[in-house]
């Protein structure tokens, strides 16, 4: 469920390369948000009219008859959800200070409020996620890969912002949502147990599935400090890093690193986000390898809810495409359907 709320700032800190992580208390959003979705953030300190709870009251949206918020800085900024903590009811946004809006947002202190609309958009949907038994995984350490069921997460620069959440969820194993639906046939051929979801591996339960899928993260950056934008190293994932200047990890593009690596450690699916040049190169690589995947796209955005049709991207084939809305039809689209300029 999408909502609009004045979320309290729990923490707000600089990470690296002019980027910041903003942790907000927003329980409804934290419960609902999926990796790859975004929040539409008012950076000017303004709030909203509060529908459907009733007419606005003084001191919130309308102070008397005026507009609360800046009449200069108008549009919301679509910002990726870096992580969410469903138990604590918090969401974390990772963003770079690039202009007037994000500069204003950067001034927000702990305890302040930020008006956010979300979660919005269609997030990442690797096969089997978030519902159903994970069908990849089977990482047998030391003896290679069994069945080659493995997801690659590829991010460049600030493109890692929506990918950490995905990497954490995938590598955390079977989430509550992802437990098998007893009313559906078990994909592994074990008869369904009506009305009861036993523990994995328990007597009478479905066979033990891999506790965590094998996730390989490929993170690219211009320089080493930019790699600190996301804490992939704390996750049980295989992390491969690349920097343009060679200051850490592979010297070169993350797409080259990805290609070099998957030749001997194959993957079955790619979820990616990053600058257009990187995604375009990756699209070429996926086509060559015959690999399916999905890309998170960015575009200048208006309403964020699919009405103004300002944030368009080309989806289809080079011969036959149509404009689709990044905010509502995306931001994540099948890699092979993105038509590059």
């Amino acid at each position: 469920m999408t909502c609009i709320t004045d979320a309290k700032v729990i923490s707000h800190r600089r990470v690296a390369a002019g980027c910041r992580r903003l942790v907000l208390a927003a329980p409804d959003i934290a419960r609902a948000v999926k990796p790859g979705q975004f929040l539409h953030v008012r950076c000017d300190g303004g709030t909203h009219a509060g529908y459907p709870r009733g007419a606005p009251t003084r001191g919130t949206h309308v102070s008397g008859l005026g507009w609360v918020g800046s009449a200069d800085l108008l549009l919301r900024r679509p910002l990726s959800v870096y992580d969410a903590d469903r138990e604590r009811g918090t969401v974390t946004i990772l963003y770079r200070v690039v202009g007037r809006g994000t500069a204003l947002l950067a001034e927000k202190r702990t305890g302040g409020r930020v008006n956010v609309l979300g979660p919005l958009g269609r997030g990442f949907e690797p096969p089997g996620y978030p519902r159903g038994v994970p069908t990849w995984g089977t990482h047998v350490s030391g003896s290679g890969w069994v069945g080659h069921r493995r997801v690659a997460i590829v991010g460049g620069g600030l493109g890692v912002a929506p990918l950490f959440f995905l990497a954490r969820e995938l590598s955390a194993g079977v989430s509550e949502d992802a437990r098998p639906d007893p009313t559906r046939p078990d994909p592994l051929g074990v008869p369904a147990l009506a009305g009861r979801v036993p523990r994995a591996g328990a007597p009478g339960g479905y066979p033990r599935v891999p506790a965590r899928p094998a996730v390989a993260v490929f993170q690219g950056a211009r320089t080493a400090p930019e790699l600190d934008l996301a804490d992939f190293s704390v996750l049980p994932v295989d992390l491969f890093t690349a920097t343009d200047d060679g200051s850490r990890g592979y010297a070169g593009s993350v797409v080259e690193l990805f290609l070099d690596t998957v030749c001997h450690e194959p993957v079955d699916w790619v979820s990616a986000a990053g600058p257009p040049g990187m995604l375009r190169a990756l699209a070429g690589a996926l086509q060559t390898l015959g690999l399916p995947g999905e890309f998170s796209l960015e575009e200048r955005m208006g309403c964020g809810i699919g009405a103004c049709v300002c944030c368009s991207c080309r989806i289809g084939t080079p011969e036959r495409w149509e404009y689709r809305r990044v905010c509502a039809d995306g931001p994540v689209f099948p890699a092979r359907e993105v038509v590059w300029e």
Binding site: G46, H48, A49, Y51, P56, G69, L75, L117, I305
Partner: peptide, 9 residues
């Protein structure tokens, strides 16, 4: 575009 509830306000 800024506040979806603006017209009601």
């Amino acid at each position: 575009l800024v506040d979806p509830g603006a017209a009601a306000a």
